[in-house]
Nucleic acid binder design. Structure first.
Length: 924
RNA sequence: GGGCGGGUAGCUCAGUUGGGAGAGCACCGGCCUUACAAGCCGGGGGUCACAGGUUCAAGCCCUGUUCCGCCUACCA
């Protein structure tokens, strides 16, 4: 049987060690297993169980929110992924963090709603279906609007569920029964309600302005949907415009010479003496031979270029403003596809790019191109298709945003909504305070059609909640609906309440709005978060969320952005197949420090996969040793061993750490506290310490106590880990024995709580001494290259009676973990001849090594230790010799330093003695 | 142009009111040890970007310099 084939793991496994399994058989382990409840396989295989438990949770209704349920509630709305999308690491991180919160708050007994759904992503989705049509040799206009929209819905039926299923593979515990889509009937109704209301209040208006036009998508875009990119191959051309009166010329500079065909003025600064006598005169626009005026406007910067600017009101936002101020003629020279139109004279029909070449060469021929220089400047690109954006004059719909923004600013300033990490508040304010009106109309077909109608008879425009049959003005039934649709983000802005049934006043809305937290990436802070704030305050009169948690980007292991072109994309689904969802989840959580990007690599995920396996094996060990155990037997009055008191104390502390970390969105702190405790305390120490108690058969009470503590600790660990690693924890939990009163799923267990009784500082202190001694002996073993199989003796002496007593009480543990045949602990113990020496817990430890090692090696080891200690001692001494330190530092710090000083002094003395003794041994 | 974040071990990064520099991975040595070689035990490794300052005490606070990211902006 080949394990690699079963698990699909592509890594090499160590060569099989057949005798090991034989060994277990001879020891009767397989025989023992028959008496046990259930056992786990040796290696954790996520593929075997993940789908099973996900289905179980869904079938049991574990994700369902109940607005009628009592108690505190906790609610979130998912940032709806594009319906066209498929899961990438950004989604994985975003949804993981939400899922951790949802599962955590459920365990805290809260009534949780996590509202899922998808976004119709107007332009992106339209592009996808257009590409499909193109493959069939068709354009959308060939089949018409209605059939095109049908095609989009059909496509959505077929593949719109993809991303939802991928979210499920990750483990997302959304209430899927409530799944919404921004184009759903209910949400569409909300959109229309908001549009009409804002229109009626004068907050939506229609008008001719310069907007960002994508000639390829064939639509207007909002300012946010334009991505600026530095072009360093740009040029700045000087153009010479002759004066109409023949008295010379004026030079203007431009990066876009093709727009000169639409120039209707040349502007200079009114204060600029160089041009004062030209103001009011006219120039002849070359190539077009049109007379245009020279005007004065403050907009012109005298320092830049020649100090004169060509004005093209139809193709530049600033020029448009100038044009309005000076009532200039507006001439469009391009059409909606980015081709030059009839106003461009002989250039009509050329593309923008070709026209530019032609204009340059024609001007050059006329001698009107005095200079050209290389020039770096920013060029806007369409965020969906990267085509260069054209500032374009057209009739569009806008939201007057200032009044909405003011409230959204106030809500954050007043603390109604907290932005976490707080550093993002500044960005939020900065954007909100400088916000400009929002262009919401799009000239595409897929989206919410604007509820406005034009009467062909009398020209009246009607904006209405219900489709009108006839014109209220002239009763004509000759009505045409506006063909534009709304910006997708208009409907996304309503998401926190539209998904809950608004504008109806539903129970869900009453219970769960405002939501507790929104978890999202900073890339959509303006696009989405800011707009939800504005819309929520406007429509609900209340903020949409109390907290906004902004997480970082997922990058590759070197901090580079993942991109297809770079080839460094890590596909979460491939990772889930390979390592399991829990490993991916834990990795992301462990790296999700606030305000810092997540650097991800397969190696890291495989590292955390090892952690999953470690947990798995700890559970496996526990199960192997629970023979005869029942979770319902009370153990409160038993005598606990030091190890048991200590692990309970540490578990209790870990509960506290994890709880406060999750309450404060410090996901990485929660993950590392659990990692540290589970692996390096529970597995490395407690399991080893518990073994003798579990394996012996003489003292039944001791054995069952050890079982109970082991069981309890593990069971609490998997509850704590459940929000981060739900699958493996459920599998373990379901395999462990449970009391009859236990719920059906670990999802429904309560999150462990910090208890006063478990606090046991004494045990912690004593355990620290034991661990220190064990480590010291192991250190000698390690540095001397003595194999673990080599049994040793040890002698411990010292004047600290408390420490001696503590170690004597725990001598079995020490002997066991340090692998000793005998251990002598006494105040007046003798140093054995030819022994290695160590210091721990203020005591001296000797390990007789006669005949075992080369003592020169021991001398080196001690010399190293001495050097280290001397350095440390010098540091502390310096401090204590500093009078200012003694005068000004708080007493507890001074006391601490003094204690340290004494301890180190003692240690140095012992070390020196040991080195001398060793020298004598070696000499003799 | 404006703003924000960052520079800590070979790599990726933690470091919560200033008080003994940490983790994971990588590396070196030892190891089949009655859960786990996806493991166990031990170990080495840092002028906390640079320069000043405040302080008894600075990775942390202040000033400046430098390098790297990101966001934002209508300079033709």
């Amino acid at each position: 049987m080949n394990e690699n084939q079963i698990t699909g793991h592509p890594f090499k496994k160590g060569a099989p060690l057949p005798f090991k399994d034989k060994l277990k058989e001879t020891l009767g382990m397989t025989e023992n297993l028959k008496n046990q409840p259930r056992q786990l396989d040796k290696n954790y295989d996520p593929l075997q169980i993940e789908d099973k438990w996900y289905k179980f949770w869904e079938d049991e209704g574990c994700f369902a929110a109940d607005p009628k349920a009592e108690g505190d509630h906790f609610s979130m709305v998912i940032p709806p992924p594009n319906v066209t999308g498929s899961l990438h690491m950004g989604h994985a991180l975003n949804n993981l963090l939400q899922d951790i919160l949802a599962r955590y708050h459920r365990q805290q007994g809260r009534n949780v709603l996590w509202m899922p759904g998808t976004d119709h992503a107007g332009i992106a989705t339209q592009n996808v279906v257009e590409r499909q049509l193109a493959a069939e040799g068709l354009e959308r206009h060939d089949i018409g609007r209605e059939r095109f929209i049908e095609r989009v819905w059909q496509w959505r039926e077929e593949s719109g569920g993809t991303i939802i299923n991928q979210l499920k593979r990750l483990g997302s515990s959304c209430d899927w029964s409530r799944e919404r889509f921004t184009m759903d009937e209910g949400l569409s109704k909300a959109v229309r309600e908001v549009f009409v209301t804002l229109y009626e209040e004068g907050l939506i208006y229609q008008g001719d302005y310069i907007i960002n036009w994508c000639p390829r998508c064939h639509t207007a875009l909002s300012d946010l949907e334009v991505e600026f990119e530095e072009h360093n191959n740009g040029k700045l051309w000087d153009l010479e415009y002759p004066l109409a009166d023949g008295g010379g010329s004026i030079i203007v500079s431009t990066t876009r010479p093709e727009t000169m065909l639409g120039d209707t003025a040349v502007a200079v600064n009114g204060e600029d003496e160089r041009y004062s006598d030209l103001i009011g005169k006219e120039v002849i626009l070359p190539l077009m031979n049109r007379r245009i005026p020279i005007i004065a406007d403050d907009y012109v910067d005298r320092e830049f270029g020649s100090g004169a600017v060509k004005i093209t009101p139809a193709h530049d936002a600033n020029d448009f403003e100038v044009g309005v101020r000076h009532k200039l003629e507006i001439i469009k020279v391009m059409d909606e596809k980015g081709l030059m139109n009839e106003n461009a004279g002989v250039y009509a029909g050329l593309t923008r790019e070709v026209c530019r070449e032609q204009v340059i060469s024609d001007l050059n021929e006329l001698g009107l191109l005095p200079a050209t220089q290389d020039y770096q400047h920013n060029v806007g690109h369409c965020y969906r298709c990267q085509t260069i954006i054209e500032p374009y004059l057209s009739n569009q719909w806008f939201v007057k945003i200032k009044p909405l923004a003011d409230r959204a600013i106030a809500a954050v300033k007043d603390g109604e909504t907290r932005i976490i990490p707080k550093s993002w508040e500044k960005t939020y304010f900065n954007w909100m305070e400088n916000i400009r009106d929002w262009c919401i109309s799009r000239q595409i077909w897929w989206g919410h059609r604007i509820p406005a109608w034009y009467c062909d008879a009398c020209g009246k425009m009607i904006v209405a909640r219900e489709d009108p049959d006839c014109c209220p003005e002239c009763s004509s039934s000759n009505l045409r609906q506006e063909t534009d649709v709304l910006d997708t983000w208009f409907s996304s802005g309503l998401w926190p309440f539209s998904t809950m049934g608004w504008p109806e006043s539903t129970e869900t809305l009453k219970k769960y709005y405002p939501t507790s937290v929104l978890v999202t990436g900073f890339d959509i802070l303006f696009f989405w978060v800011a707009r939800m704030m504005m819309m929520g305050l406007k429509c609900m009169d209340e903020v949409p969320f109390k907290d906004v948690y902004i997480h970082a980007l997922v990058r590759d292991e070197h901090g580079h952005k993942m991109s297809k072109s770079r080839g460094n994309v890590i596909d979460p689904l491939v990772i889930i197949d390979q390592f399991g969802a829990d490993a991916l989840r834990f990795t992301l959580a462990a790296f999700a420090a606030q305000g810092r990007d997540v650097s991800l690599s397969e190696a890291r995920i495989s590292g955390y996969r090892n952690f999953v396996n470690k947990l798995w094996n700890a559970a496996r060990f526990t199960l192997m040793n629970l023979e005869g155990f029942s979770p319902d037997v009370a153990i409160e009055n038993r005598n606990f061993s030091l190890a048991e008191r200590w692990i309970s104390h540490r578990l209790n502390q870990t509960v506290g750490e994890v709880t406060s970390a999750l309450d404060e969105y410090r996901f990485n702190d929660a993950a590392s506290a659990l990692y540290q405790f589970t692996w390096h305390e529970f597995c490395d120490w407690h399991l080893e310490l518990a073994k003798p108690d579990l394996f012996q058969r003489e003292d039944e009470v001791r054995r069952t106590t050890a079982q109970a503590v082991l069981y309890r600790t593990l069971e609490q660990i998997i509850r704590l880990l459940h929000p981060i690693m739900p699958f493996v924890c459920e599998e373990i939990w379901q395999t462990l024995p449970r009391s009859a009163a236990a719920p059906k799923s670990i999802m429904q267990t309560t999150f462990p709580k910090v208890t006063l009784e478990s606090d046991d500082a004494l045990a912690a202190q004593e355990m620290a001494q034991v661990m220190e001694v064990i480590t010291a002996i192991r250190n000698i073993r390690g540095e001397m290259n003595l194999s673990p199989g080599q049994r040793l003796e040890a002698v411990i002496k010292g004047s600290d009676e408390n420490a001696i007593n503590a170690l004597q009480r725990n001598s079995d543990c020490i002997a066991n973990l340090a692998r000793l045949t005998s251990l002598t602990i006494a105040k007046d113990a003798q140093r054995p001849p030819q022994s290695a020496a160590g210091l721990a817990a203020g005591l001296e430890i000797f390990v007789p090594l006669a005949g075992l090692v080369d003592f020169a090696q021991e001398a080196t080891r001690l010399a190293k230790e001495l050097k280290k200690t001397e350095k440390e001692f010098a540091g502390v001494s310096n401090k204590l010799n500093n009078e200012k330190f003694l005068a000004k530092a708080p007493p507890e710090i001074i006391e601490k330093e003094q204690g340290k000083h004494q301890e180190l002094e003692h240690k140095l003395e012992k070390l020196r003695v040991n080195i001398r003794t060793l020298e004598q041994v070696t000499e003799s």
